[in-house]
Design a protein around this nucleic acid. Structure first.
Lengths: 340, 340
DNA sequence: CTGTTAGCGCATTCAT
DNA sequence: ATGAATGCGCTAACAG
């Protein structure tokens, strides 16, 4: 518990600097004018004694913990880790420190994790995805600054930071159409597996709308469902092939399944992108390692994390966030060849 | 800051349960025998008022923070994130909470991050890799439980949890030799880029030793250096090819570079593993998505994280860790074909 | 077994 | 501008 050998307190340095404890506190937190001489004396004593304020005493007395709670859903997930990284970067240089909790995509655990963060008296909280009810989130937001990332809330859109899934899917599909593809398969996932409420479904809708806007009727035989895991992408392609309905491109609702799809195609001797074009969704960094590599222009997840950190800091400073409702754009990696 | 509407303290529930605050504290932390009746009354009051103990007051009074610091080097790195995940799992169900800090592979930042964790009065600390001097680590270990993961310390081996790099590389190389390969290239990295002191160098040594033990003299023309990043793997293969020295297999000192190598081979139309076999190192999960996929039997990084959590818990309970010096085994993914 | 009394280390009034 | 006093909420002796 002790930071070094002796636990020196504010009294020690007050004594050494010949001032009162309150003066020491003042110069340390810059809360009031203090004579330059005393200020210097205090600072010198601080460095000489290598004084470290006790965070718990500070928090107890001030009511501030100087921490930001971050509720993620899956530690180790590329997309979420990207956001975490962004948050870390965004908080750098500030006096705030992130406290992480993992909901593991299980509502019960998620609630527990939320409670833990609240128990830790975080000054602000960033929630990534998840299934916490909007009511609960509203109740929390009433007490402390709250930002929700990668999820769209109807009742409190001004707290959200999310990707426009519909638009991104729409653009991806449109791109394939423009490349001459007419038989575009889509790998989606049923609601039970969906990350947050209806992300995946919106991608499905974007896919359909793009087809319709370009004058094509979506063919249900070209749509298969997976569970968002890599392995299900393999099965999805098997399923597609078994249906006998030809296709020249696949748009997968997430990168994981697109990896599985890539694998299945490889096993079948189907070349990408010569025989079949492939587009994923989520911007997993590892997609760049695929053969051929899927490409993207930026790393939106990290950007979202940074934006989230900025927003929560703004909220805590009383400012309304500069990005009340930031919308990341197309998060797609592609490996596409022209058709016809 | 307040958890809910009203901030209720231990006095509130003491009053409601008709006992003294200390009795409340006793039942809450189970620190002494309390009459069942009072115990029940307290518990009921706690639930009725939805009482949440103030962590800061607890820590201040008890001297325990119930947190363990985790110093990582690169948030978002597959290998380290695996360890973090393991730590999270290992801490689950205990009363301890992890506090993460990121050293970013930069010694100055690493020191700062360490200081921050210490300032937060963590009860124990897990250090992943890094370059903190052994002296500093020893000084810390003298004060609080310390476990060092993915790094081997000469002066305090009993605190370490690492991979036997030499052995793993030795086995990988031997495996290639047994598969009939004779011209085995190796992609390594100079010291300046090395993760922790000499991990990469030990892999190089293991590679050499295996060759010698099997009666072959290492050929310097088959060894190239990268910087551990993916892109450098591409360049490494280009370099190898330009040298005109034939090779039938590549053993890369980490997975990132092997991905790059895979890419370069693909661009050159060299098939894997038909033309050239490839072995990586680190067990990156994404390696499974390569085409053809690299395989492995387990996920050592997560295991190491769990072991680290267990070890630190043991240390804090006064027990000597059950795994004083755990050595993960072969961390290799392979895509190898028989030669000749 | 249980209530009373002191702090834990700091921030923050309130006087001066 | 600065010192003294008070309290943050809880734990840990200390008595009984």
């Amino acid at each position: 518990m002790l930071n070094n050998e002796t636990k020196i307190t504010i009294l020690d340095i007050a004594e050494k600097a010949n001032v009162s404890p309150s003066t020491v506190s003042r110069v340390l937190r810059n809360s009031a004018g203090v004579a330059q001489k005393k200020r210097d004396a205090v600072m010198q004593a601080v460095t000489e004694l290598d004084y470290r304020p006790n965070i718990f005493a500070q928090s107890l007395a001030s009511g501030q913990s100087m921490t930001i709670g971050v509720l993620t859903q899956n530690f180790g997930s590329p997309f979420y880790d990207g956001i975490l990284q962004g948050i870390l970067q965004g908080l750098e240089g500030t006096d705030y420190w992130p406290l992480f909790a993992d909901g593991r995509w299980q509502p019960a655990i998620e609630q527990q994790a939320l409670d833990l963060l609240l128990d830790r008296r975080v000054d602000g909280i960033i929630v990534l995805g998840g299934q916490t009810t909007e009511e609960r989130l509203q109740r929390i937001a009433a007490n402390i600054p709250l930002v929700v990332v990668a999820r769209e809330l109807k009742m409190m859109p001004e707290h959200c930071l999310y990707v426009d899934n519909f638009q991104a899917a729409y653009r991806a599909t449109k791109y394939l159409l423009e490349m001459g593809h007419r038989d575009i398969a889509h790998i989606t996932a049923p609601v039970v597996y969906q990350e947050s409420v209806d992300d995946i479904f919106k991608r499905y809708q974007g896919y359909q709308q793009a087809l319709r806007d370009m004058g094509f009727e979506p063919d249900p035989r070209l749509v298969v469902e997976g569970n968002l895991q890599q392995q299900s992408g393999v099965l999805a392609v098997e399923m597609l092939l078994s249906r006998g309905r030809p296709f020249s491109a696949i748009f997968s609702a997430n990168d994981q399944m697109s990896f599985g799809a890539r694998l299945a195609l490889f096993r079948r001797g189907i070349r990408v992108p010569e025989d079949v074009s492939l587009i994923g969704f989520d911007d997993e960094a590892s997609a760049a390692y695929m053969v051929p590599p899927l490409t993207t222009s930026r790393q939106p997840s990290v950007e979202m994390g940074q934006a989230a950190a900025q927003a929560i800091l703004d909220l805590m400073n009383g400012k309304t966030p500069t990005l009340p409702c930031f919308q990341a754009h197309l998060i797609v990696r592609e490996s596409v060849s022209r058709r016809r």
